[in-house]
Amino acid sequence: MIEATLLTKVFRDKKKGEIRAVDSVSFRVEPGRIYGLLGANGAGKTTTLRLIATLLKPTSGTVVVGGHDVVREPGRVRAGVGFLAASTALYARLTAREMIAYFGRLNGMGEAALRSRIGALAEQLDMNDFLDRRCDDLSTGMKQKTSIARTIVHDPQVLIFDEPTLGLDVMTARAVMTFVRECRDRGKTVVFSTHVMSEAEKLCDTIGIIHGGSLRAEGTLAQLLEKTGETDLEDCFVKIVVPEAAR
């Protein structure tokens, strides 16, 4: 369960002055549901997700993840969260197995539990062929599988995906989408950000449209379409985000 209340993040920039990257964003994600943050580049998706994952501290507002406040108990929050982004990379000179094991240890897992967990993950994600190869020798698809295994090695209840299909080919992207769906089916709380309409359409139970740091609309796909009177998510998105005069 994730509950964000009036979440705000202000960056200070010497040239541009104050930038409100996230402005009073509130939303709620239940276990077994996928919440999709849909927005253009620079809309505030990544900052919002980083605030939930405690990578950044909110300027004001709160987020409670799995019963823990991100400001007061960041360590506890991270222990229950798996974070996967297009920008979260692998260590080139570690093998896939070492990479997963490192994050297991950082999560405080014991060696015996870690061994059986890696065995199970390798089986589940079909990684046995390349488990002992260095990450810089892996194909994009293999890297993505390793990243997924790294994300869920400690079996977190909350999963945060920040544009996880960015730069992936169709097959790898589909595998990632399937994985996100599986997480929901196993009762995890999932937040997923994307700028690809079709992904949001296919995956998300609830879609939040974010623009200029604030949440412009929220609802199921059907609710959003009904509200705007459109038949297509892209048209609906444009209608919400771009002011009438500019269209």
Partner: peptide
């Protein structure tokens, strides 16, 4: 630069 710092900061390690 390589993006592994973000990965590392996602872990519960202080």
């Amino acid at each position: 630069e390589r993006g592994t710092m973000e990965t590392l900061l996602c872990s519960p390690a202080a």
